[in-house]
């Protein structure tokens, strides 16, 4: 595990307060140093990524190191958000882990085709989250001359 002086910035895109609670608890139990921001739907996630609306303060809401994305969301769902991220160059390159209640293989295939790197089903276990963050680090190290300095 690569040690970080600063916490890992997580963007959790999740509309259910219960699931936000379970996520925070699991990430806390993982013992990693993280900072989790929550977007309640796809539109909020767009705002966060572009530092708009209530996420306008870039210092308070920096580009996330990893995004945990629910598929079923109001307004703009997970798939639509993935499509939007691909078609918007101004959107920061983000490592995406799907976190959903759907275990349907077609949902996983579709999410991966749209650029998601991981597919986790709810509820997330602390160990799963630790592994997800580790895979994110590996992916970032492999991308030579990574696009951002953390």
């Amino acid at each position: 595990m690569i040690s970080h002086e600063q916490p890992i910035i997580i963007l959790l895109v999740e509309d259910s307060p219960d699931d936000v609670f379970f996520f925070r608890r699991a990430i806390h139990k993982s013992g990693l140093s993280t900072l989790t921001h929550v977007a309640a739907d796809g539109v909020e996630a767009m705002d966060y990524l572009l530092n708009k609306g209530r996420f306008a303060d870039r210092a308070a809401y920096p580009p996330p190191d990893i995004m945990f994305l629910d598929l079923k969301l109001p307004h703009v769902n997970g798939f639509e958000l993935l499509e939007w991220m691909r078609s918007h160059a101004e959107c920061p390159q983000t490592f995406v882990a799907i976190l959903t209640s759907s275990s349907q293989p077609e949902d996983q295939e579709r999410a991966e085709a749209l650029g998601a790197s991981l597919y986790l089903t709810k509820p997330p276990a602390p160990e799963q989250l630790r592994q997800a963050l580790q895979k994110r680090s590996v992916a970032r190290t492999e991308a030579v001359g990574g696009e951002r300095r953390r």
Binding site: D18, D19, S101
Partner: peptide, 18 residues
């Protein structure tokens, strides 16, 4: 059904384990 109906059940199970 697979998403909305099972979500509360997951919450129940989650809070029970907590």
């Amino acid at each position: 059904v697979s998403h909305d109906l099972r979500a509360p059940l997951r919450s129940i199970s989650g809070f029970v384990s907590i």
